[in-house]
Nucleic acid binder design. Structure first.
Lengths: 115, 115
DNA sequence: ATCATGGTTCGCCATATGGCAAACCAACGA
DNA sequence: TCGTTGGTTTGCCATATGGCGAACCATGAT
């Protein structure tokens, strides 16, 4: 389950777009063909296919074509890789000595350690 | 506490670069001036300052200048925003009907939701 | 006053990104 | 067979990104 570290660059890049995040959100609820995925968006198919290409290049989705319909599904493990990097950073931050001090002297906390 | 949802686009975009992620990782261990942050990288200062600008535009870091030294510190809450989005997606995925079915299939059958 | 240091700004360039329109291909369905 | 549907490919364009070098400030040290 703890798969090797995939390239984070393309993963984060793929997530840095609302269209692509929406596609992820949709696919998290189940696989779907391209047309259905594209339907909520105003852009044309070519532009949308580029987004799918970015997602697939990042390994966040896989697609399979049967007949003339291409069905896409998400690869949750790749998303987890991004989440894991973030969790690691947070662990670093939480382990900091000055945070401990700041927590102790919580007189006027403008940024409490609330995740 | 429940911070409002910052724009995810610039956050993920800022993270989609190894230089910027390294800066984050460095700053997670404590604040640092620009020169020290830039030192590990091969690029020139102008290019590096652009990276800092991207990070700061995303709200991931703040910087403050005293004398001629600019000191940067990280804003962990912004990172948490990205982490939270990912966690939400994972929750969606874990709640999926077909995943539930796959699990139930080997345990006991409460009620299979149709799709 | 002068000089070194730490940043900053300013053009400039190559490439990547995100979008379009239009033509095209491959499978259904009638 | 022929039209429709679902995707794909092919230019093409505007803007953004990531890097450079060089000139430029402002502060701290000598």
């Amino acid at each position: 389950m703890a798969n090797q570290r995939p390239a984070l660059d393309p993963i984060f890049h793929a997530l840095a777009d609302p269209t692509r995040r929406a596609v992820i959100g949709r696919l998290m609820q189940g696989a779907a063909p391209v047309k259905e995925l594209a339907q909520p968006f105003a852009m044309g198919l070519p532009a949308f296919l580029k987004h799918l290409g970015v997602l697939e290049a990042a390994g966040l989705i896989h697609s399979e074509k049967q007949g003339r319909v291409r069905t896409c599904r998400v690869d949750a493990a790749r998303l987890a890789a991004a989440e894991q990097w973030l969790a690691e950073q947070r662990a670093l931050w939480q382990g900091r000595a000055d945070r401990l001090a700041a927590f102790v002297e919580s007189q006027n906390p403008p940024n409490p350690p609330s995740e």
